[in-house]
């Protein structure tokens, strides 16, 4: 594959189990394309530098910071954004445990937690910590997030 500079190219991205047409330049960041072209504004920009985790999405089952990925790298991959999650246990658990306040980091946290739950249904405290230290929450003290994710993991046991 090759894409030339300054040219826009039409592609299809598989987002939330739908084929979505996008017109992109090679240097377009996936986060921007999801938000600005597809209107999927649930993924949040917090730093565009891979530091905060607010833009975390799921690519083929793996959490990825969408600000650190070019949109063209996502072609032929299964992209899931927060808008693609419906009634999942982790979403319910976040609500029940008051695991957010301003809600801005929440989509990124939920995407990361959801992937963690899928991959490690019996995750230990160490594994939870290793995964979740990728995201910053500035409102809670992480206590409620910890309770929310553990309640889903423990219900798996």
């Amino acid at each position: 594959m090759s894409l030339s500079e300054g040219m826009k190219h039409q592609f299809y991205l598989n987002v939330n189990q739908e084929e979505r047409s996008v017109v992109i330049s090679p240097s377009d960041i996936l986060l921007s394309v999801l938000r600005e072209q597809l209107g999927l504004t649930g993924s949040k920009p917090g730093c565009y530098n891979g530091d905060c985790g607010a833009c975390t999405i799921d690519i083929n089952g793996t959490p990825i910071k969408s600000c650190l990925m070019l949109a063209i790298e996502a072609i032929d991959k299964n992209i899931t954004t927060i808008e693609g999650l419906k009634d999942t246990p982790i979403q319910k658990s976040f609500v029940e445990h008051f695991a957010f306040q301003c809600g801005y980091c929440t989509p990124g946290f939920i995407m990361n937690c959801n992937a963690l739950i899928q991959k490690h249904p019996n995750a230990s405290d160490e594994v939870i910590e290793e995964w979740l230290e990728s995201n910053i929450c500035r409102c809670t003290g992480y206590k409620e997030i910890e309770e929310a994710v553990k309640s889903v993991l423990h219900s798996n046991k």
Partner: peptide
């Protein structure tokens, strides 16, 4: 956001 374009191969 990258402030310039490039070719991609």
């Amino acid at each position: 956001m990258i402030p310039f374009n490039f070719e991609y191969y």
